[in-house]
Design a protein around this nucleic acid. Structure first.
Length: 448
DNA sequence: TCTGGGGTCCTAGGACCC
DNA sequence: TCTGGGGTCCTAGGACCC
C-alpha cells in the first residue's frame, strides 16, 4: 500500500483531477509509410512490410511484424535481404505522392478535432496539438478520442503522447508505441510522479533532442536515463550540450515549457532537392543534367509554396576511394551565389546553378550525390524590388504555372527543360513503387 | 616587455529531427 | 556490388567597422 502525503486533498492525491493548462499532445502515425501501403493491400494486414528510402537504399519504415522478425531501422536494404526473403516480407519503394495525400487527410482530421489554430504539423506523420485546460483524466480520454477518430476517418492508426511540454509529450509517445498492448497507443505524463517513473525507464538516446553524438557523451559521463539527465544542472547543460539547446532540453524534461507551438504560416528558410546517383558519376555532362533536374524540382517546389529565392547553392559529395569500416558522413563540397533579385522562374535559377556545377566539378573525380539548395526565400507577395534590374515581365511566371499544371495533371516530367537530359543514366532506382492510388486516375485502386 | 576592445554580419559546419 | 532526402537551429570564427 502506497503512503499518501497528508496535506493533499484525497481527490487530488495523484494529481489526476487537478486542472492543467497548456497540455500538449503529439499525434504520431504508426509505421506511417507501411500503414499507407497496407491501406490499399488489405491482404498485407498483420503481415511484415517494409518501405525503402529513395534509391531503394535503406529501410525507412517497418510494420510491427517486420520489427519482430528482427529488421532494424535505417539499415541498408541489401543487408536485410536475407531476413526479408526468409520471412516473406513485402517490400515497397517509397511513394511520396501517396504518403503526402494520406498525411494531408490525417492532419485535416486533427484540425477538425482540435481547431486549426491548435494544430502544428511537425512532419509528414506527426502533429503537435495544444489541448484546452483539462484534468489528467480528461486528457487521457481526449487522447483516445483522437486515436479512434483518426483511425476511423482515414484508416491510419496513430499513437498519442500527452504532457506539459513537447519533449515530455514525445517521451510519452515513445512509451505508448513501445508497448501498444499496455498503452493502447495512448500515454499521458502529466503528474510529477508519472514523469519521474517514465524518465527513469527511458534511456537518454530515446529522448527528443539527444542524437548519437550526445548519447555517446552522456553515457561516457554516466548519465544513462532521462531522469539522470533531467537532474543535471543548467550550467552543465550550457557547457556540455550545445548551449541554449541543452538548457532548453533539461527544462523541458522538468516540465517547464520552452519549445513553443509554431504558428503554421511561418516562413520557410530553404528548399532543396538532392539525390544519390544510381551509380557514381564522373563526367560533367551527367552532373549538368542532374543539377538541371534538381534545380527544376526545387523551383517547382518553390512555386507550389509561393516563394521566390535569392540564393542558390549547389553541393556534391565525391566518392571516397578508401573505404573505412565505419559508415560516416562524407565531406561535402559546395558553392553558392546570390542573385540580384529573388525569382522562382526555372531558367533564371538554372543558369547560375549550372555555372556553379561547372566550377565545382573536377575532372577525374567521381561523385555519388549532388543537390541544389534555394535559400534567401521571400514570399511571392513581398519580393523586394531592385532598382537596377528591370522588372521581369510576368511571362516567365505564367509559363512556369502552365508547366506546373501540365506536369501535375498528366504525369511528372512530361514537360521539362532540355538541360535535364533525356537518358538519365544517373537516375535513382525505384523499382518497387506501389500505385499512386489517391492522386493518379490511371493508378486508382481497382475492385474486381 | 609590449601589441585595444567591442559590436555586427556572414559563413561553415555540427548537431539534431523525421 | 549496394548506406535516403529534406529540413531547422545553434555556435564558432573571420571580416569588417568604429
Amino acid at each position: 500500500m502506497q503512503q499518501q502525503p497528508e496535506n493533499i486533498h484525497p481527490l487530488q492525491h495523484n494529481g489526476r483531477s487537478h486542472i492543467y493548462k497548456g497540455l500538449k499532445a503529439i499525434v504520431d502515425c504508426n509505421s506511417f509509410y507501411c500503414s499507407c501501403e497496407r491501406l490499399f493491400r488489405p491482404d498485407l494486414r498483420s503481415k511484415p512490410v517494409v518501405v525503402l528510402s529513395n534509391n531503394d537504399g535503406c529501410i525507412v519504415s517497418r510494420s510491427d511484424e517486420a520489427k519482430q522478425v528482427g529488421i532494424d531501422m535505417a539499415i541498408p536494404y541489401f543487408q536485410a535481404k536475407n531476413l526479408i526473403i526468409k520471412h516473406n516480407v513485402s517490400v515497397f519503394s517509397s511513394n511520396y505522392t501517396l504518403y503526402g495525400d494520406l498525411s494531408w487527410r490525417v492532419m485535416e482530421t486533427l484540425r477538425i478535432i482540435a481547431g486549426k489554430n491548435n494544430v502544428e504539423v511537425y512532419s509528414v506523420d506527426e502533429s503537435f496539438i495544444i489541448l484546452p485546460d483539462m484534468t489528467a483524466d480528461e486528457a487521457t480520454n481526449y487522447g483516445f478520442f483522437i486515436r479512434y477518430t483518426v483511425e476511423q476517418w482515414t484508416g491510419i492508426s496513430v499513437s498519442v503522447g500527452i504532457a506539459p511540454t513537447k519533449t515530455l509529450a514525445k517521451a510519452a509517445n515513445y512509451i505508448a508505441k513501445k508497448n501498444k498492448l499496455v498503452s493502447q497507443c495512448v500515454t499521458t505524463l502529466i503528474t510529477p510522479d508519472e514523469q519521474r517513473r517514465a524518465l527513469q525507464s527511458i534511456r537518454v538516446n530515446h529522448l527528443w533532442g539527444v542524437g548519437k553524438a550526445y548519447t555517446d557523451k552522456l553515457i561516457n559521463m554516466g548519465i544513462t536515463s532521462g531522469w539522470d539527465l533531467r537532474n543535471m544542472p543548467e550550467q552543465w547543460a550550457n557547457k556540455q550540450m550545445g548551449g541554449v539547446t541543452g538548457v532548453r532540453l533539461i527544462k523541458e524534461l522538468r516540465g517547464e515549457s520552452c519549445i513553443e507551438m509554431q504558428k503554421q504560416l511561418d516562413t520557410k528558410k530553404m528548399i532543396s532537392s538532392t539525390r544519390m546517383f544510381g551509380t557514381p558519376v564522373n563526367d560533367i555532362q551527367s552532373v549538368r543534367e542532374a543539377i538541371a533536374t534538381y534545380t527544376s524540382l526545387a523551383a517547382q517546389k518553390l512555386r507550389r509554396q509561393r516563394y521566390s529565392a535569392r540564393t542558390i547553392s549547389i553541393f556534391m559529395v565525391p566518392k571516397e576511394e578508401n573505404h573505412t569500416l565505419d559508415f560516416h558522413h562524407d565531406p561535402i563540397i559546395s558553392m553558392r551565389t546570390t542573385l540580384p533579385r529573388a525569382t522562382s522562374v526555372t531558367n533564371e535559377l538554372m543558369k547560375p546553378a549550372l555555372q556553379l556545377a561547372e566550377k565545382l566539378f573536377e575532372e577525374g573525380k567521381s561523385y555519388k550525390k549532388a543537390g541544389v539548395m534555394l535559400s534567401g526565400l521571400e514570399a511571392d507577395e513581398c519580393i523586394q524590388g531592385n532598382l537596377f534590374v528591370p522588372e521581369s515581365k510576368n511571362n516567365g511566371r505564367f509559363l512556369m504555372d502552365m508547366m506546373d499544371n501540365i506536369n501535375f495533371s498528366m504525369r511528372n516530367d512530361i514537360l521539362k527543360f532540355a538541360a535535364s537530359g533525356t537518358t538519365r543514366n544517373w537516375k535513382m532506382r525505384q523499382e518497387l513503387r506501389s500505385h499512386r492510388f489517391t492522386t493518379r486516375w490511371e493508378e486508382l485502386f481497382e475492385v474486381s
